[in-house]
C-alpha cells in the first residue's frame, strides 16, 4: 500500500492526453467524493470514481487504465451532473477507455459478444452499445 509520487508522472504526456480527449481539467476536482457517493455502479468498482481522478492527479495512469472501473462505468452521467465543480468524470472515464481501445486492446471479444446476444435475444441497442463502448 505504498506508492512513490514522481514529478515526471504528474501531468505527464499520458495524463495530458486523457485530459485532452475528455476536454477536462482534472485539477478542478477537490476530492469531495460526491461522484462516488452517487455512482450507481460504484459497488462493483475496484477504484471509486474520485479515486480514478485522484490517481490521474498524482500521475498514476496505469492504476486507472488497468482498473475494472473504467469498463464498469456505463456513462449514466450521475457523477458529472452532481459534481460541485462540474468535473466531467463521464468524459474522463470515456477518455480512459479510448486510450486503451485506440491501442486496439478490446475489453470484450466480438464473436463471443454477438453469440451471447443472439442466444439471449438481447435488445439491439445493448449490443451496439457494447461494441461501441468496449471494442475498438
Amino acid at each position: 500500500m505504498k506508492i512513490n509520487i514522481k514529478n515526471e508522472e504528474i501531468r505527464s504526456e499520458r495524463v495530458l492526453r486523457i485530459e485532452e480527449i475528455a476536454g477536462e481539467n482534472i485539477f478542478k476536482c477537490y476530492q469531495c467524493g460526491k461522484c462516488s457517493a452517487g455512482c450507481p455502479s460504484a459497488d462493483q468498482m475496484d477504484l471509486l470514481p474520485n479515486q480514478v481522478v485522484r490517481n490521474l492527479q498524482i500521475g498514476k495512469v496505469d492504476a486507472v487504465l488497468n482498473s475494472k472501473s473504467i469498463w464498469i462505468c456505463a456513462s449514466c452521467f450521475m457523477c458529472w451532473t452532481r459534481c460541485p465543480r462540474g468535473v466531467n468524470l463521464t468524459a474522463l472515464f470515456e477518455a480512459c477507455r479510448q486510450v486503451k481501445l485506440r491501442e486496439n486492446i478490446d475489453e470484450v471479444g466480438l464473436k463471443q459478444t454477438i453469440q451471447e446476444a443472439e442466444e439471449m435475444d438481447i435488445p439491439q441497442i445493448a449490443v451496439i452499445s457494447v461494441l461501441r463502448k468496449l471494442t475498438s
Partner: peptide, 20 residues
C-alpha cells in the same frame, strides 16, 4: 427513479444488472 439499470452491461456483465 433516476438510478441506472446497468444499461448495456446486460450483455457480458449480467450479474451487475441482476444486482441493479
Amino acid at each position: 427513479h433516476n438510478e441506472c439499470c446497468g444499461s448495456y452491461h446486460t450483455l457480458g456483465k449480467r450479474d451487475l444488472v441482476i444486482e441493479r
